[in-house]
Design a protein around this nucleic acid. Structure first.
Lengths: 109, 109
DNA sequence: GCCTCACATCGAAATGTGTCAATATGAAAA
DNA sequence: TTTTCATATTGACACATTTCGATGTGAGGC
């Protein structure tokens, strides 16, 4: 139960960095190798590697090794799960966990 | 341009905390006052206040003061903008910014 | 007026994150 | 095999974040 929010939030934590959000945007138009991504940022190679690791670990991006190069692309499944989680926590609903919260129980006489 | 990602990422940064994601989930079934939210967590009142401030500042939640109580609810507009941003950076597209990235320019002979 | 209640803010401590230079790894070229 | 190249990992540092107890604030109740 707690794990549900922890895992869902981990993707948002990854997207919570502007550079990583921009990297995801870049990858949305196709697979790119690390060196091409690096060109667009004024960050060191090790920093980019760190960001890519985080994006991969949360399941949003997958890396494909080809010789000495690594090609990164978005994970369709990871994106689908992310959108699903966002809808789950934001769409209006009768949440079973909190449905017995009577608004008159507190905050009124 | 850079501001675009920074603002979009700020919402994800807010949702990147499991407690805050859970609070948003709670609010999705209706307005709640701070005391009711606090009941569901084993955190201090000041910590909750801090989380609510972050959720409000990124535009996802709005607070409504009524006497000495504060009622929190989701911002339909904030949610819409968040979903839009997520789709913008993840949906497959011909991104004008990166469309001239020739995959054969790098990473191949 | 004074007290109480709900919530916000402050200050401090612990932990987490982003970044870099340096170094390691592993594949291909020479 | 030695070198070179692309990427990953390590170690260190600055800064941000989470959390708490203590205190401030502003609205009602006495």
């Amino acid at each position: 139960m707690d794990k549900f929010y922890k895992e869902g939030a981990s993707v948002f934590k990854a997207l919570g960095d502007p550079r990583r959000a921009m990297i995801v945007d870049m990858l949305s138009c196709g697979e790119l190798c690390a060196c091409k991504i690096l060109e667009k940022f004024s960050i060191s190679q090790s920093t980019l590697s760190h960001h890519m690791k985080l994006l991969c670990e949360c399941g949003l991006v997958v890396g494909r090794n080809e010789g000495k190069w690594t090609h990164y692309s978005l994970s369709a499944d990871g994106i689908a799960r992310t959108k699903q989680f966002l809808c789950h926590i934001t769409d209006s609903k009768e949440n079973p966990i909190y449905k017995n919260m009577d608004p008159d129980q507190c905050c009124s006489k």
